[in-house]
Design a protein around this nucleic acid. Structure first.
Length: 421
DNA sequence: TCTGGGGTCCTAGGACCC
DNA sequence: TCTGGGGTCCTAGGACCC
């Protein structure tokens, strides 16, 4: 049994690269990657933030992901801004994953633009890991038109950290013996799972680099940051043992939320948005053959204060109606119409793959009937075949609220990351 | 950085039970 | 009525990731 070799493949400026590659294919003269450019949301709809930036936008104008478009334009008046096209990104991502499967059956989609690949024992077939990684990188560039960084390490954590080194279009390794020179000098905030809050706590205690974190006694971290302290101490020392997770790993929850183009001031409109969001999320739930037992409603006021409220149901459900009715109750309890809303979301958790009837004398009425389920599934089918708006509720007819709001038009669901990679 | 949308995991307090 | 302790479930919120 040979030592584990893990690859982490990371698409360089993913949304922007894909957008650029697509436009070139369509005959565009300009390569977005060569000029200051960003993929950004619609300012008119209050989603005006930078989702991805080109390297010139970053290095010459210090434009950052998550920044307001207005701010980015101030930094660079000639900034090229293109709207996002999630459908395209998913297709690009799928094409890359398909190519990667040629090199190993053990693939984990970590996000739309990041993939882990277990290369252990694959040397005999594809040559040593460096050669293989360079081949993969070159093939993606040639056949798909975008560049990737590939990080190689003995576990997923080190592979991922290695892929963050110099970009774009590079292969890097990070093996245990390289940790002191390649990892430890970096600022502690660059460590995976050290975000803003944790970074501040560490800086306050005089820990500025990953190396300093690694050399701090482990029990101090436990005292300061509980289990999260132990996690990042392990990470600073390169310790991480999770396996490359196969596909079909069960989802834990799913949600749909949106920032409304205008503030919502009345319950009637808020309920319409809620219904619209529920239509989509419950349809995705049915698509995944899941039932949810917890419904969570979240709102954000015009003052950017967030509130959430959740309710556990007696029985798991996938019924649009049950989820909507629950959401409505939660909205009533959560919001008194004092302050207008800018954001509404509904999410579902405690998922199960079957509706286990927990029959009691009192909850007969709460159980969804099979005929109701077939009814919703029939609607899903019609919408899948003829388009989302082929069948809509009449209450949306004379409303500015879209009948199915929010979300990305993902064709398939795949489970997201956890802190355990 | 005056702030999108999709996720996962952890913690802490209260209710309730023995 | 003051005081114990352990366990589980539910809920709200925060931290992190892309």
């Amino acid at each position: 049994m040979s030592d584990p070799i893990i690859f982490h493949i990371d698409v360089n400026s993913a949304y922007l690269s894909w957008e650029a590659a697509y436009r070139l294919q369509k005959g565009a003269q300009l390569d977005l990657r060569q000029v200051p450019s960003v993929v950004g949301g619609d300012s008119q709809k209050r989603r005006g933030i930078v989702l991805a930036k080109s390297i010139p936008a970053k290095s010459k104008f210090k434009i950052q992901t998550g920044e307001l478009l207005s701010s980015a334009r101030k930094k660079c008046p000639d900034l090229f801004v293109v709207p996002p096209n999630y459908d395209l990104y998913l297709r690009c991502s799928n094409a890359m994953v398909e190519l990667l499967y040629e090199y190993s059956p053990f693939i984990q989609r970590y996000s739309v633009d990041e993939v882990f690949l277990d290369f252990t024992n694959m040397e005999k077939q594809f040559g040593d890991y460096l050669t293989a990684a360079n081949t993969i990188k070159a093939r993606v560039k040639e056949e798909l038109g975008f560049t990737v960084n590939i990080g190689i390490g003995p576990n997923k954590l080190l592979a991922k950290l290695a892929s963050e080194f110099k970009k774009p279009d590079r292969v890097h390794t990070l093996f245990p013996e390289e940790i002191p020179t390649k990892l430890w000098p970096l600022p502690v905030g660059e460590l995976f799972m050290v975000g803003r809050a944790t970074e501040k706590k560490l800086l306050d205690r005089g820990i500025t680099t990953i190396g300093e974190l690694a050399k701090t006694p482990r029990n101090k971290l436990k005292l300061w940051l509980k289990s999260h302290g132990l996690l990042i101490w392990d990470f600073a020392n390169g310790i991480e043992e999770s396996s490359v997770r196969p596909e079909g790993f069960p989802m834990k929850g799913l949600g749909n939320s949106t920032t409304t183009p205008e503030n919502v001031a009345d319950k009637e409109t808020a309920r319409l948005w809620l219904l619209s969001l529920t239509e989509k999320v419950s349809s995705r739930l049915r698509d995944a053959h899941c039932y949810a037992q917890v419904v969570n409603l979240s709102i954000k006021t015009s003052q950017f204060i967030s509130y959430g409220k959740q309710k556990k149901l007696l029985n798991p459900t996938n019924s649009t109606k049950v989820i909507f009715e629950t959401g409505k109750k939660l909205l009533n309890e959560l919001w008194d119409e004092e302050e207008p809303l800018r954001h509404i979301g509904i999410s579902l958790s405690s998922l199960s793959s079957s509706k286990s009837y927990q029959l009691s004398m009192f909850d007969k009425l709460s159980i969804d009937t099979d005929s109701e389920e077939s009814f919703y599934k029939a609607i899903d089918k019609i919408r899948a075949k003829h388009g989302e708006t082929s069948l809509i509720r009449s209450c949306f007819l004379h409303s500015t609220v879209p009948p199915l709001a929010g979300g990305v038009d993902a064709e398939e669901e795949y489970p997201m990351m956890s802190s355990l990679l």
